[in-house]
Design a protein around this nucleic acid. Structure first.
Length: 571
RNA sequence: CGGGAUGUGGCGCAGCCUGGCAGCGCACCUGCUUUGGGAGCAGGGGGUCGGCGGUUCGAAUCCGCCCAUCCCGACCA
């Protein structure tokens, strides 16, 4: 294509609201434009990258024997009512009503619809099946952010496996696991598989593919020693022994006027590790106390996973006061027997603790957790901290920010059962297939590459997904010889199947160089009178900045080689 | 939903406090010069100042409500 006739609206300044590097550069480079919060238009350049990412995914899915479908994006309510998710998905689901008053949803994911199709599987001989699609998903995200990283409308490759038994599911899961590693490698993403919480999907096991980036939204714990890797929503760590402070026979109340925080209490000589943090939550509508060591953060997701609770929300100050007679900052569990009490495992065996007295401006010291608190349920709900020891090898764990680029789930029979799927096994017995589901967000993958592949001058696309592989930059378009050389090289490269962009704009060379770099085309051939005098053209690499003068006659072959090598990288 | 912030030509911003002709840079159009790293000069086009209401002789500016957008947290590919 000729740059002069393309719509590539590059910007010198990024919009003020763009914060993440990928967001700024994708907008500046003319790849995307926002329509509303969480909804982006793909401009020609952006759509080319998007399609190339999708094609990499498609090839690797096909390679494990998966079959491509395309399902409706809009679903009748009844489909979701059958699985129970019409209600459980809550506000996250976009809903609409047709002219006849019928209720519909825009699909957030497609377990139900694929499971409906699987009703036509009749025999164990039909299994296993691996089905996928690349389709738009709609999620009423509470907070879209960071450009393409978190949006309300996005293309997702979602696949689903149907197997007779657990061994089959393991195989399908492993096939996906391996395919995902290949996909991310081809995208030049350093994706780490980590143990994850299954969240709203349910199911027995799930692995997230995480790419380290400050723009991420998840914290992941990694062990440099044994390779343990887990989302902090699930991660555990070895707990170092804490020497209990001397305890008293009964908890002693002492005045703490104005003391409302762990830190303030610490300044009075009660270190956080010797404090009990008391949180009041509404768990599926019921108030409950959750106790942690003073220095430990509470992770709601861990709690939900451990207890099976759906709704885990902090209680309001007035309901806390009604229940305990004190305000946050002075709360404790000693003597409480009207509310369920959950305690984090880190409090087991602890004594000599300090906690709120359920009376404003008073705390208790000398508390022995197991003697003085009526714990109903012990749970592991604390967030682990950077530097804690790995539970399996003792080396320090590092905790860092990651982008969730893919997620694979063992679903089990939740959806197949709900939708009434069954096949006959070899003995003629009816069996419910077990399912897996596997997702990669295409736009998010694209943004993740942008996030991890850029420099001060702009984007640096890997050859595999670059919008164009080569740009021919004509320094002076009114120089007839330059244009003639450029035209003939352009035709030759096009003929060789190279995605080549001819920058024939009547502008200054500096502007064209800057645009080529901003847009991130991997290779640039500069065509100008300077090189032509010596019968050479300058080929430069976006990634390394390396410039090579190539004899005119060899340029086409040189470029074809470089592109071919680039395409094959990481395969 | 809780907390913080912002809305002024396509993009980046000033003006607002202290009410009085809507400005600057980039981009865009025309002409001349320039031409291998975001050119120079001259001329020019483009703005319901987020919306509605109020105060006032007069509102971008003051007051109220609403909307939108961004950032931090709870949720997800």
């Amino acid at each position: 294509m000729r740059w002069s006739s393309l719509f590539i609206p590059t910007l010198r300044d990024a919009p003020a609201e763009a914060e993440a590097a990928s967001h700024r550069l994708l907008v500046r480079g003319g790849f995307i434009r926002q329509l509303q919060s969480g909804h982006y238009s793909m401009l020609p350049l952006g759509w080319r990258v998007h399609q190339k990412v999708a094609e990499v995914v498609r090839q690797e899915m096909d390679a494990i024997g998966a079959q491509e479908f395309l399902l409706p994006a809009m679903h009748a309510a009844s489909v979701w009512q059958t699985s129970g998710r019409w209600t459980s998905m809550g506000d996250e689901m976009f809903r609409l009503t047709d002219r006849k008053g019928g209720e519909f949803a825009l699909g957030m994911t497609h377990e139900e619809v694929f499971a409906t199709l699987s009703l036509e599987l009749n025999s164990y001989r039909d299994l296993p099946q691996l089905w996928y699609q690349i389709q738009w998903k709609f999620r009423d995200e509470p907070r879209p952010k960071s450009g393409l990283l978190r949006v309300r409308e996005f293309a997702m490759k979602d696949s689903y496996s149907f197997d007779l038994d657990d061994e089959g599911l393991d195989r399908s899961f492993q096939l996906h696991h391996a395919a995902y590693l290949r996909i991310f490698r081809r995208l030049d993403l350093d994706a780490v598989p980590v143990e994850a919480s299954s969240g709203a999907m349910g199911g027995s096991a799930s692995i997230e593919f995480m790419v380290e980036s400050d723009a991420g939204e998840d914290d992941v714990a990694l062990c440099g020693g044994c390779g343990y890797a887990a989302n902090v929503e699930r991660a555990t760590a070895a707990l170092e022994m804490v020497e209990n402070r001397p305890s008293s026979d009964i908890p002693e109340s002492f005045p703490t006027p104005g003391i409302r925080t762990i830190n303030a209490l610490a300044e009075l000589g009660h270190p956080p590790i010797h404090q009990i943090k008391t949180l009041v939550y509404r768990i599926d509508g019921e108030l409950a106390l959750i106790l942690l060591r003073g220095d430990h953060p509470f992770l709601e997701q861990k709690f939900a996973d451990a207890t099976g609770a759906n709704e885990v929300v902090p209680a309001e100050a007035d309901e806390i006061r009604d229940a305990l007679g004190a305000s946050p900052g002075s709360l404790g569990a000693v003597g409480v027997d009207t509310l369920p009490i959950y305690a984090d495992e880190a409090l087991r065996g602890r004594s000599g603790m300090t906690t709120g007295a359920n009376e404003d401006d008073f705390h208790l010291q000398g508390v022995d957790v197991e003697r003085d608190v009526r714990v109903d349920t012990w749970v592991d709900v604390r967030g682990i901290l950077d530097g804690e020891a790995c539970a399996s090898c003792g080396e320090p764990l590092s905790v860092a920010r990651f982008i969730e680029a893919g997620h694979i789930f063992k679903l089990g029979r939740k959806y197949s059962e709900a939708m009434g799927v069954s096949v006959l096994d070899a003995e003629g017995v009816s069996r419910v297939p077990t399912m897996g589901s596997y997702g990669i967000g295409v736009g998010r993958a694209m943004a993740t590459v942008a996030e991890t592949h850029h420099d001060d001058n702009g984007l640096v696309w890997p050859m595999a997904i670059a919008p164009y592989e080569v740009v021919l930059t004509v320094a002076k378009v009114d120089h007839a010889e330059s244009m003639a050389v450029a035209e003939s090289l352009y035709e030759e490269l096009r003929g060789a199947g190279i995605d080549v962009l001819l920058d024939d704009r009547d502008g200054r060379a500096g502007v064209k160089f800057a645009d080529a770099e901003l847009v991130g085309i991997p290779l640039r051939v500069t065509i100008g009178s300077r090189g032509l005098e010596s019968e050479t053209l300058e080929v430069s690499s976006r990634k390394t900045g390396e410039q090579t003068n190539v004899p005119l006659k060899e340029v086409a072959a040189y470029v074809v080689n470089a592109v071919t090598a680039g395409r094959a990288a990481n395969r």
